[in-house]
Each structure stands twice: as C-alpha cells, then as structure tokens.
Simulated assay, not measured.
Amino acid sequence: MTCNCDYILPTAAGWQSHYDNCRPHWEMTNGKPCPKNEDRTIRLQNPHLAALECDVLYHLGLDTKNYDLPAMFGDVKFVCMGGTKLRMRELARYLGEVLQTPTDLVNITKHSHRYAMYKVGPVLCVNHGIGIPSLTIVLEEVIKLLHYARARDPVIIRVGTSGGLGIPAGSVVISAGAFNGTLEQVYDIPVMGKVRKLPAVFDRRLNQELQSLVPDDAEYRTFCGITMAANEFYRGQARLDGPFCDYTAADKMAFLSRLVSLGVRNIEMEATAFAAITHEAGMRATDVCVTYLDRLKGDQVTPSAETLASWQKRPMEVIGKYIKKYCELKLKK
C-alpha cells in the first residue's frame, strides 16, 4: 500500500517522513484499518449511522436532510477549536486578513444557542467551551460533519490558553501528547460501566511543521512538550487558591516538579480527550497554547487584560502562517 499523505510542507531534515494517519503507517502502528478512505475522506466507525434517515447534529444546529453539507463544508481543510466564542470570532477575523479572504463572520451554529462556528475559506473556527465534556460534544459532531461533507484529510488544531511549567509566561506550547490527572498518556472514558483508556497522542510531523514556522527572532519562545489535561481547575491542577485544599505548598511543588521531569510543559483542561478522539478518527491534530503564567512561581493569573489579549494572538500567528503556507503551496497551483 502506498503513502497517501497530503503534505502541507515539504519534508525537512529530521522530520517524520509521514503523518501519523498515513494509511500504511497507521495500519502498521495500530494493527487495524485506517479510518480514512482512499480519497482521504473520513470513514466513521459506527455502523448504526447507516440506519438513520437524517442525522441531527443537535449541538451545531445542523442535520443531513435540510442542509447541503458537502456544498457548505466540503472544502474545509482546517478546523481550529478554542474555548470561547469571542476568541474563535477573533481567530476567524484574523485568518480572513491573513488569507485575504472576505468574511462576514456569520455564526453558522447560531440556531443551536450553544457553540459558535465561523468559516473562512478552507478553515472552520469553532468554540468548545471549558473542559473535556463540553469539548467532546462539539468535537464529535464536527467529525461527523466533516464526514458528511466529504472533506479530504482535514487537520484539527486546538488553540488555547494554559498554565506553563518552568517556562516564561507568554510562551507557546505545541503539545507532543497529553497526560491525564494520574499521569497516564490516555483519555479515560467510561462506557457502559467500564473505563476505556484511549491513547492521547498528537501528530509528530504536524508539530514539526508548525514549529518550523516560528521565526528565530520571535518575541516569545515556543516549546514542544507534553500537556497535562486536568478535570478541575483548582485541586485538579494542584493550586493553593481554591475553596478547598488538603495538601501543602511543598506537596504542590513536588508534584509540579515531577511533571517537569516527565516533560510536561503546560496544564489545561482538554488535551487528553482532544488528542484521543482525533487520533481514533484517524485525523491529524495538535494543541497549540499560550501560557498565562509559570505555575512554579504562582497560581493566579496576574498580567493585565491588555497583555493577556496580546499573548492570545501568539498561537494564532503560528497557525495563521501554517494555513497561509498551505494555501500558497496547494490552492494556488
């Protein structure tokens, strides 16, 4: 079986030669068929969907009967996801400028009253709320949407904020993988009374491509490392400033130092589920976050609103350069 990678950037020295969802690479690594069709569209792994006359994507306010999903989304190559509606609107506006693509920033999912989704050329910008439960709802419906739209080999990138570990505040972290709260590189999902552990891994080649576009003279540093995804903001992240705390400051520092020794560079609340679900779907994905603080130095976010707003643009800049490169190399041929 031959490689079917849809390369975004030409291979450079030291890079992975294939994306993780290259069909022969996937099947050799995972020991099962790649959930990607020959034409690079997504093959859903749920036989029950074939019995549905109409699949209602309830949380997106869309369905397969009343909307022409291939016409609306068939050209989507990138999906950018982030926590807040405002941040995704700002990202859509920014990408419109980068790609020189006019957009009126219409919220496609406004009828659902739950999430916001904007389309700019080959890019969807979708907010996912805070935490894994909110993320998984919209992420799984977006995957079905891309399947029904027959989008070819889409790339999904989470754009977020986080707390850093031993790195300067304002740094950008590109996730190499994700740990859960018990420091396993898995997403734990209870299914019918039993816990399944899904591997939480991101595409290595995609990370290498993204990191290559950060200029050496950037005003911020970029790191590639493990991300810890917590299920809770305070105790789940070993903070001392929550309403409850039954451990000492020394306990906190010992735990955070252990994370650093394991290669963890930041903490947020979505990475394990995001990595595991996109990997299970056979999709290229990664998590690109700015850090608001160094957790080894404190727990509270103290920079000004203006500073935080400027830092939020840093992951957008990295992703914008990447998507622009794709459009230059692929769409203008």
Rank of each mutant, 00 (worst) to 15 (best):
D6A: 08
Q16N: 12
S17F: 09
D20N: 04
D20F: 06
H25A: 04
K36Q: 14
N37T: 09
D39A: 00
P47Q: 03
L60W: 02
G61H: 04
L62D: 01
D63T: 01
A71G: 04
F73K: 00
G74S: 10
R93A: 13
G96H: 08
Q100H: 12
T103L: 01
T103K: 02
N107W: 08
T109Q: 00
R114H: 10
P122W: 03
C125R: 06
G131P: 10
P133C: 01
R152W: 07
G160N: 11
I174G: 00
G177E: 14
N180C: 07
G181D: 12
Q185T: 15
D188G: 03
K194W: 10
V195H: 11
K197I: 00
P199V: 04
P199S: 07
F202N: 12
R205K: 15
R205M: 09
Y220A: 00
Y220H: 11
C224Q: 15
N231G: 12
Y234C: 04
D241A: 02
D241C: 07
G242K: 12
A250Q: 14
M253D: 13
R258Q: 15
R258K: 14
V264A: 11
I267E: 06
E268S: 01
T272R: 08
T272V: 08
F274D: 06
A276Y: 12
E280K: 11
M283H: 04
R284D: 09
T286N: 10
C289T: 12
L293M: 15
L296K: 14
K297P: 06
T302H: 12
L308M: 14
A309P: 09
W311N: 12
Q312H: 13
P315L: 01
E317M: 08
G320T: 11
K324E: 15
L329N: 14
